[in-house]
């Protein structure tokens, strides 16, 4: 049996379950919508302004995440072959981490991680 077959089964089951819950919300309860009720809830204050504006800090965090996450995945490969590579692998990874750490220090020094 293909080991990824259960993944598909769980996926279908999970989507089904989520769908059932969403469907229940739609059909089981009463439905008496009116204009006031379906306004977005912002503490009763009349809604002003746009919702699509967000701080650029979040983009920066996302970009840094992608960089460091790819690096983490790369480290997993090294960790798996750790015993075969031995000291050679450690030497290589020290170089790799040194370069990475230099980048990290640069990011910190430029204040990319400061939240104000």
């Amino acid at each position: 049996m293909n080991p990824y077959l259960p993944v598909l089964i769980v996926l279908l089951l999970g989507v089904g379950l989520g769908g059932i819950l969403s469907g229940l919300a739609h059909f089981a309860g009463p439905r008496k919508p009116n204009r006031i009720k379906s306004e977005p809830y912002e503490c009763g204050v009349p809604i002003v302004g746009e919702r699509d504006k967000m701080s650029v800090k979040f983009y920066l965090t996302a970009i840094l995440f992608i960089l460091f996450d790819i690096e983490t995945v790369f480290l997993y490969l090294w960790a798996m072959t750790f015993r075969e590579l031995g000291w050679f692998g450690i030497g290589e990874i020290v170089v790799f981490l040194a370069v990475l750490f230099a980048g990290y220090v640069y990011v910190v020094k430029r204040g990319a991680l400061e939240w104000d």
Partner: peptide
């Protein structure tokens, strides 16, 4: 389960309904 479902006006309907399913699976 038996509460009324209120979908806010201006919500992106498709994404609004998909998001909980995504979380669950």
């Amino acid at each position: 389960i038996f509460k009324e479902e209120v979908v806010p006006t201006g919500a992106n309907k498709v994404v609004y309904h998909i998001a909980p399913i995504f979380s669950v699976f």
